[in-house]
Amino acid sequence: MTTIFLRSRQLRQAVRLWLPVPAFMLVAMPAHAAVDSSDEARIASCIHDAAAGRPWLEKTLWGLRDQEAGWIGAEVSNTNGSHDLGPLQINTWWVPRIAQLMGRSGPEVRNWLRYDACFNVEAARWIFLAALRDTGDFWKAVGVYHSPTAWRQRRYSLSVAKRMKHRFGDRAFLERQD
């Protein structure tokens, strides 16, 4: 548990010091698998912690998680040769960037993205927030999380919005309270 916390904290500290490249992911279809209830509780805890008390960010991370539908240990192949890893399906395109940011090896980061739910969620948080900073537009950033292609971004954003509404009802889109 301490190791997981340290890795997630290390990623969070490292990204504060790094100016991100434009955030985008290669196209991938969501992976679906049965998720163990204890794993789901762990993912929920990681999402809560990564949001750091910001309800709008917690809802966003849940929308991305529900859309991606990954699981701890997931490695889903894409047609372009990349893979999507872990609960929020972080594309392997990100591995070298995160590894460099943290001063760690690519295989180590890849393993954490697959098997460490909190590290995976923190990486998703970073990708989304970098896209939000780059675009200045919430829904555009949601789309950029998924793809560099405008029409895929729009389709993805609409799907995430539906999942957020399904999970949170109309309160999913209330103005932020923090």
Rank of each mutant, 00 (worst) to 15 (best):
F119P: 00
H146Y: 12
W93V: 07
T135W: 06
K140G: 00
V121M: 04
R133L: 11
S105D: 14
S147A: 13
L101V: 12
L113Q: 04
F138V: 11
V142I: 15
A141H: 09
W151Y: 15
G136L: 08
L101F: 01
A124H: 04
R110P: 00
A123L: 05
W126S: 11
D137F: 11
F138G: 01
R97L: 07
K140V: 13
L129P: 00
L113C: 03
C118I: 07
L88W: 00
W139D: 10
H83V: 15
A123E: 03
E108Y: 13
L113I: 10
F119G: 01
S105N: 09
M102D: 04
K140F: 00
R125L: 10
T149W: 05
E122V: 04
E108T: 14
Y115V: 08
G106H: 09
Q89S: 09
S105L: 13
V121P: 02
W151K: 14
F138H: 15
H146P: 06
Y115Q: 11
I90N: 04
I127S: 01
T135Q: 13
P107I: 09
R110Y: 09
S147Q: 08
V121S: 03
Q89G: 07
A117G: 11
R114Y: 01
V109D: 05
H83T: 10
G106C: 11
R104G: 01
W94F: 08
Q89C: 08
Y115L: 12
T149A: 09
G86H: 03
F138I: 05
Y115P: 00
R133C: 03
A117Q: 05
F128E: 06
F138W: 15
Y145W: 14
P87F: 12
F119D: 00
F119N: 04
Q100D: 12
Y115K: 06
V109W: 05
A99P: 07
W139E: 12
N111I: 02
L129M: 14
A124S: 14
F138P: 00
I98W: 02
R114S: 04
A141M: 11
R114W: 06
T149V: 14
H146R: 13
V144Y: 13
A124V: 03
G143D: 03
L132M: 13
L88Y: 00
E108W: 12
R133V: 06
F128N: 06
R110V: 00
W151A: 14
A150I: 13
D116F: 09
N91Y: 06
R114I: 08
L113Y: 08
V142D: 11
A141E: 07
R97K: 10
T92M: 02
G106D: 14
W139Q: 12
A141F: 08
